[in-house]
Design a protein around this nucleic acid. Structure first.
Length: 843
DNA sequence: AGCACGCCGACT
DNA sequence: GTCGGCGTGCTC
């Protein structure tokens, strides 16, 4: 794998002046690469994987990635020159380029789109047109006849030296500012230039140390003390510095100095005396580039020895890796998969490769990070969407430089510049959130992670308590190895699951709003015992819709075909698809009645009502609305962990990666909305969700219980959840998938046709379906059909589903047929403004 | 994706 | 009559 690090163009000692060309990936959705000429002086600097600056089109200056270097001069056009090289070493590795190519091909998008998604924007360059005064123009002397707006611009430029176009717009308070710029250019008062700026800035701290002088010569320090005795404040500063940096013990310590803030933050020291000492030349100030991540040295020890089951699982995995590249670890919730991962990561590091540990967004919590930090210390990099851009760029660079050998990260970490991977771990592999839906690339991090491992000769370990049917099928057919952990760690028991028939309870008047009497008593019971409760409701907001009692009016989104959800905390009606929101009306806009009623319920209502019914309980809600701020998520978790809150109400977020020892009850308020989902994966999903939520209950000796409220307790799925019977579920599901030709027996591609006009969308979809049927065969193409939500953001939707056979040669051909069909459709005059999106392996 | 060139309505 | 709308088409 290490050949991959050596990107240098073959070092031919030839004296011939070779003319080289570079094919570059522009960060734009363009179907092909563009060829630029490498200026001779840059021949040695332009390498595959570095960023270069080029001019694209009339004036746009962009940074892009070099994908290939060759000597083939383009025949039919004059290649422009590369303007500049930004990196002295590649920031994209060769295996990465191969992977990006695969992503673009497989998920039917452009390389530019992949690059765009992959690079932290701190590594992308922004080019913005700017204006400045014409070098020969002197506003004081040269008399030009200027419009008042033009005067204004010149005045601003005199003070600012440069303005961006948007700044000019703001300055003039005008949308149509262009003509003034044009006119000023004509009058030769200003010029336009393009500026490319590298946005990545390393973090710098101000530090302070003694000047060389005092350290080098013996005795000078003592002399200094005597000198400073009349200025006690300055002496204080010096003494404090020596306390922090005992230079008298080891003069070498002075070189690193101490952070200036360590002195300035000390209330006993005066800032002015610090500054005086700097002025006197006693102390000096310097900048040091530091990491945005705290350095922590892991003790390289497992925090706890593996249990017998864990050891056995680990050995089985390692054994299987000898013959197979991929292994699925099927371990019940609470079986301690994480410890097994940690052990395997250590194992992989010992043999000298890199490791990627993928987790779904909601499972990448401080809990897991702390655990990993303890073991891997500063070898561990974290890649999370909540990170700032500079932090992400630092992780990126850290992998390239070898500083990070293990990355724990979310979906997008598959884009990171690994070049020597030896192990990829994909935890919670069944998670649908590994799939990105919008925008392109519509990739699945599970499949992509597998491909990445394959390209770099690494092993892949997938883990789940509830594997996806596709993955389990791969084990059954022998392609992957399978390892099972059936026991919970520390002999903890799997939770007892109890069903409550809400329909029957309603008849018996046992329902208090959305809570059954049973659930309420059980919650009260836990509160009494100082234990904790998690309540799951798969819907945020207060109510999914409201309705007028008099006239049945229901508020709908202006842009989407959905009803607006009611959010009580800010008294708003909100669309969960486009974000449109309005104030909750006081009375019905249709009939004027004051009888607006909320229908159904979300997490907010659960929280609200529980607080009313059990006033002694400390209830906290965790969903998208309460975790928007950067630290709010962590706050909620730590409040629950410390016991400040007793009941946690939440959406999907509460189902993953959270281990709270004191949780003895989990309630699922409305199981029916989860089961009755019109999708071939609905059963699988429901099973996974129920098992995952249930898994939050009872760890370490305390048996937990789960209460599931449903109107239909006879659903067979409940028995499978109750008895933890994955294999029955699998057998049932795989049989259905075979019968109806769903994955894993086929590959699906979903084509969505969008248009502002519903008739145009429909007609275009019909035309496209016809064309696709002709190309691929009638039985492969289903639809078009109008999706359940038929309009989003003012675009009407039509869907076509394509089912393709599994083998990959046909797959490639089929995809190019599909791309052709879409291309042709867009050429048709009747459908201008049409948007077509292909989603490969939709989830 | 931008951004330029190019053909039709309301204004100095 | 022009300014300016945004509709197609190209960018190495």
């Amino acid at each position: 794998m290490s050949e991959l690090l050596n990107f240098n163009y073959p070092p031919e000692p030839s004296t011939d002046r070779v003319t080289l060309f570079a094919d570059v990936i522009l960060p734009l959705p363009l179907p092909k690469l563009y060829t630029y000429r490498i200026p001779y002086e840059m021949n040695d600097e332009v390498l595959v994987g570095v960023r270069v600056i080029v001019q694209f089109g009339a004036k746009k200056v962009l940074s892009c990635i070099v994908a290939d270097i060759h000597e083939n001069a383009p025949a039919d056009y004059q290649a422009k020159y590369i303007l500049d090289v930004l990196d002295d070493k590649p920031i994209i590795t060769k295996p990465q380029l191969r992977l990006f190519k695969w992503i673009a091909d497989y998920y039917m998008c452009t390389l530019g789109e992949v690059i765009n998604a992959a690079l932290p924007s701190a590594l992308k360059l922004s080019s913005e047109s700017r204006i400045q005064l014409h070098p020969h123009y002197n506003p004081e002397e040269d008399e030009l006849i200027l419009a008042p707006q033009e005067e204004k611009i010149i005045f601003a430029l005199n003070n600012n030296q440069a303005l961006t176009f948007t700044e000019v717009g703001n300055l003039l308070q005008l949308k149509s500012y262009h003509k003034f710029i044009k006119s000023l250019i004509q009058k030769e008062a200003i010029i336009i230039y393009e500026q490319v700026s590298d946005k990545f800035s390393p973090k710098v701290v101000k530090k302070i140390r003694l000047t060389e002088h005092f350290v080098q010569e013996e005795g000078l320090l003592e002399e200094l003390f005597n000198q400073l005795t009349p200025q006690p404040k300055q002496l204080d500063v010096l003494l404090n510095y020596l306390q922090l940096v005992p230079v008298h013990q080891d003069i070498n310590l002075n070189y690193r100095g101490t952070e200036k803030s360590a002195l300035t933050n000390n209330p006993h020291l005066s800032a002015s005396s610090i500054n005086t000492l700097i002025k006197k030349g006693v102390l000096e100030q310097f900048d040091q580039i530091v990491s945005r991540f705290p350095m922590e040295h892991g003790n390289q020890q497992l925090p706890m020895a593996l249990s017998e089951h864990q050891l056995q699982a680990k050995d089985e995995i390692l054994g299987l890796f000898k013959e197979k590249d991929t292994v699925l670890l099927h371990g019940v919730t609470g079986s301690g998969k994480t410890e097994v991962y940690i052990d395997l990561i250590k194992h992989a590091l010992d043999s000298g490769g890199q490791v990627l540990y993928l987790l779904p967004e909601i499972a990448l919590t401080a809990q897991i990070v702390t655990r990993l930090m303890k073991v891997f210390g500063d070898k561990l990099g974290i890649y999370h969407s909540k990170f700032s851009d500079n932090e992400r760029a630092e992780v990126w660079q850290g992998i390239l430089s070898g500083r990070f050998q293990v990355i724990v990260g979310v979906r997008s970490s598959i884009f990171l510049p690994f070049h020597d991977l030896s192990l990829v771990i994909i935890d919670e592999e069944h998670e649908p959130s590994y799939k990105q839906y919008d925008p392109a690339p519509r990739y699945n991090a599970r499949e992509t992670g597998l491909m990445m491992a394959h390209l770099q000769g690494a092993k892949t370990l997938l883990g789940s308590a509830t594997p996806s049917i596709e993955s389990y099928y791969n084990c059954k057919t022998g392609r992957w190895g399978l390892v099972s952990m059936t026991k919970r760690f520390g002999e903890a028991k799997l939770p007892e699951i109890e069903l409550v028939d809400t329909r029957r309870e309603q008849q018996r008047k046992n329902m208090h709003s959305h809570f059954s009497a049973k659930l309420l008593t059980e919650i009260e019971e836990r509160l009494k015992r100082q234990e904790q409760v998690i309540l799951f409701q798969n819907r945020r907001g207060y109510a999914p819709f409201i309705s007028c009692d008099e006239c049945s009016w229901i508020p709908k989104c202006k842009f989407c075909a959905v009803s607006l959800s009611y959010h009580k905390y800010n008294n708003e009606l909100r669309c969960h698809y486009c974000g449109y929101h309005e104030r909750m009306p006081h009375d019905c806009p249709a009939c004027g009645a004051t009888t607006l009623k909320s229908m159904g319920f979300g997490t907010e209502k659960v929280e609200d009502e529980l607080k009313l019914m059990l006033p002694s309980a400390e209830v906290q809600r965790m969903d998208l609305d309460t975790t928007k701020k950067k630290n709010s998520y962590q706050q909620i978790i730590s409040d629950f962990e410390s016991g400040r809150t007793n009941v946690l109400v939440g959406t999907q977020m509460v189902t993953k990666g959270l281990d709270f020892e004191n949780v003895s009850l989990v309630g699922i308020l409305n199981a029916d909305t989860i089961i009755n989902f019109p999708d071939f994966r609905a059963h699988e999903r429901a099973y996974q969700l129920f098992v995952q939520v249930s898994g939050r209950a009872g760890r370490k000796g305390k048996p937990g219980s789960v209460i599931i409220q449903t109107r239909d307790p006879l659903q067979p799925i409940f028995n499978k959840v109750r008895s933890n019977d994955y294999s029955t579920l699998y057998e049932h599901e795989i049989e259905e998938r075979m019968r109806f030709g769903y994955p894993p027996f086929t590959r699906m591609i979903r084509i969505t046709v969008k248009h502002a006009d519903d008739k145009a969308a429909e007609n275009a979809a019909i035309v496209l379906t016809k064309d696709l049927s002709d190309r691929l065969g009638k039985q492969q193409v289903l639809g078009p059909e109008v999706p359940y939500i038929f309009k989003i953001r003012n675009l009407f939707l039509q869907e076509i589903h394509i089912k393709l056979p599994r083998d990959s040669t046909n797959l490639k051909a089929a995809k190019s047929q599909i791309a052709q069909a879409i291309f042709n459709l867009k050429l048709l005059a009747d459908f201008k403004g049409i948007r077509v999106v292909a989603d490969v392996d939709p989830v």
